[in-house]
Design a protein around this nucleic acid. Sequence first.
DNA 1: GTCTATACCCGGATAGAC
DNA 2: GTCTATCCGGGTATAGAC
Lengths: 166, 166
Amino acid sequence: MAEGRRAQAIREARLLLAEEGAISMRRLADRLGIKAPSLYKHFPDKAGLEAALIAEGFTELAAALEGAGDGLPNLLAAYRRWALEHPHLYDLATRQALRRDLLPEGVEEAAGRPVVVAAGGDPDRARALWASAHGLIVLEQAERFPPDADLDAAWRALAQAFATTS
Amino acid sequence: MAEGRRAQAIREARLLLAEEGAISMRRLADRLGIKAPSLYKHFPDKAGLEAALIAEGFTELAAALEGAGDGLPNLLAAYRRWALEHPHLYDLATRQALRRDLLPEGVEEAAGRPVVVAAGGDPDRARALWASAHGLIVLEQAERFPPDADLDAAWRALAQAFATTS
DNA sequence: GTCTATACCCGGATAGAC
DNA sequence: GTCTATCCGGGTATAGAC
């Protein structure tokens, strides 16, 4: 076999999510040339499919953050870039309670580790830092800021706020 | 007349949003004892109805922030409290591009002013501060943090990061 | 592992009569 | 300003045949 249906479905689901902003089992089945009920032979339900995508996203994000240069501005820039390049996957992975029971061990932690390091190892500070970056991203993605807002400057202000304050 | 249909509809829409987490024109009409098409005599479309709710939310949030005590921790606490007490309205007002064309003049600015003041008048810093609080709120509301996360401590860490850094 | 058929649910909005 | 009738669309998931 060149590729299992499951792997093919995950690949197409990412394309579908990227192109249309949402996944439906019917639309995904159309792309695969099968009928929607057949998908349930490969995934128990939609959450199982989504978890596979989210796991991929965490792994890629972790690599992107590891590859960022030193310093908080570089880390924030890498985080922002990855999120804006994968807006709907980012949204899928953050807007709802994480189904940790469906995720491979360690993927969430791998994506979070660079942030904890940047926060000096303080988990509370790391969560504040992560949430701050997340807030800028979701507001930016939703075009929620006024049209004249200078978002690059806002990101710089965020980096400055968290620059070795403690 | 005791109360116009429009005002009644807005009131019921808020209850519907608070109780069920979403507004549908059909569900709203049911609550009012009318049929869904009749709502379109009072609002041009759903966005027009939502804008009325969002405007109310901004006004109430502005009052809550004005009433917060001095200091960044108090401001953040007031913001957090209002958002968590009105989670779905908060979400409605922040998760999508704001229809400023449907909003009364000044309501957005009124809600934002206390944040700008807290940021020392720097609009970029104010946006970073706002987004940071927003990020904590949406992640908290979505139950996206790990179960053992100490969110009060994260809020304290945020306040410290923005404590007169510049 | 695929299919057909189907179950159930939901949504926004318009036309035209009264 | 309300109604009925209707338009369009969407969705997750299961049963049972092949």
